[in-house]
Computed example of a mutant assay.
Amino acid sequence: MPSSQPETDRLTPGTALLLATAPLMWAGNAVVGRLAAPLIAPVALNFLRWLLALALLLPLAWPVLRPGSGLWPHWRRYALLGLLGIGSYNALQYMALTTSTPLNVTLVGAGAPIWMLAIGALFFKAPVSRQQVLGALASIAGVLTVLSRGSWQELLALRLVAGDLYMVLATLSWALYSWLLVRTDQPASIRGDWAAFLMAQMVFGLAWSGLFTGVEWSLGRWHASWGWPLAAMLVFIAIGPALLAYRCWGLGVQRAGPVMGAFFINLTPLFAALLSAAFLGEVPHGYHGLAFALIVGGIVISSRRS
């Protein structure tokens, strides 16, 4: 629905804090996912994360689950959004973190705007400008730098870590999710209510995640080491990346606009590098800095007007 308010407002310290909190939480999610890899199977981790998040969100958004709410006449669209954004993206990210580092995962994920550009052009007939093509080439070069570990010979030899490929699939899932998100009409009972909108996706995403967890168990890949470390990780990823980040991001974009938000989201790899060094002892390499510069540069070029 068109708005009479301007797309962007002046960036205040409070708005900057909101926009920076979300990528900090998402970087923390990657680090915790790496720490949790020896303790619990990745798909099960995703299921338990969203199960706890749903329980926390229920007091705010329970009316959306009533039989007469606007959710059920549109259940198919929310089931698809839940599959892509909750059931698939997060599970693939945790699977990626079993073999790849948080920094690599977040850098590959930072190429999401490029996949959004490609999916928009292929499936939604979205126009593509010359600046967007140039930006796409720069950002793709950044993603390839991560995948090759800074060695083009290694990329040509296809010696890739499985986790990086899982993250490419996760990023494709997120790109398609984002397009469907903006193309989905919201019922009146859900429109403008962040908690209801998240709950509408979460209830179906949790069902998908439960199904995938069952497949993981049937394949003999389910495992869990219960204890306070795992419990603390689950509480963090349910409250921080799943609920707090979503709320801060929504408020920040409302105040500063989506263009300004796009620059802040690329803080995620930087935060991931700092947190990885602090908690995992994984020191960034020179090619990580080059990849970050290429990805951010590509997005800056893409966002410029002709």
Rank of each mutant, 00 (worst) to 15 (best):
M1Y: 09
S3C: 11
Q5N: 10
P13T: 05
G14C: 08
T15Q: 02
L17W: 09
L18E: 01
L19Q: 01
W26E: 01
G28C: 01
G28N: 00
N29Q: 05
V31L: 03
R34E: 04
L39K: 05
L51A: 15
A53P: 03
A55K: 10
L60E: 03
R66Y: 13
R66A: 15
S69E: 07
W72M: 04
W72C: 03
P73L: 09
W75P: 07
R76H: 13
L81N: 01
G82T: 06
G85F: 03
G85N: 13
G87S: 04
S88T: 15
N90S: 13
L92Y: 02
Q93K: 14
Y94E: 06
M95G: 07
T99H: 10
P102G: 04
N104L: 05
T106W: 01
L107F: 09
G109K: 00
A110C: 14
G111C: 06
G111I: 11
P113V: 04
I114K: 02
W115H: 08
I119C: 14
F124C: 07
A126H: 12
P127C: 15
Q131D: 12
Q132M: 15
L134C: 08
V146K: 00
G150S: 13
G150E: 11
G150L: 08
Q153I: 13
L156A: 15
L156V: 14
A157Q: 08
L158S: 06
L160A: 09
L165Y: 07
Y166P: 03
T171W: 02
W174K: 05
L181V: 05
R183C: 09
Q186E: 12
A188Q: 10
A188R: 13
S189V: 03
S189H: 07
G192A: 08
D193W: 05
D193F: 12
A196F: 12
A196T: 09
F197V: 08
L198D: 01
Q201L: 04
M202F: 06
W208E: 00
G210S: 09
L211D: 03
F212A: 07
T213I: 08
G214L: 10
G214Q: 03
V215I: 15
W217T: 14
H223A: 15
W226R: 06
G227T: 02
A232W: 09
V235S: 11
F236G: 00
A238W: 02
A242E: 01
A245S: 11
R247Y: 14
V253M: 08
V253K: 00
R255N: 11
V259S: 10
M260Q: 11
G261A: 10
A262S: 14
F263H: 13
I265E: 02
N266P: 04
F271A: 03
A272V: 07
A273R: 01
S276E: 03
A278W: 08
F279H: 03
L280Q: 08
G281M: 06
H285T: 09
Y287N: 04
Y287E: 06
A293T: 10
L294H: 01
G297N: 06
I299P: 02
I301A: 15
S303D: 09
R304F: 15
R305Q: 13
S306I: 11
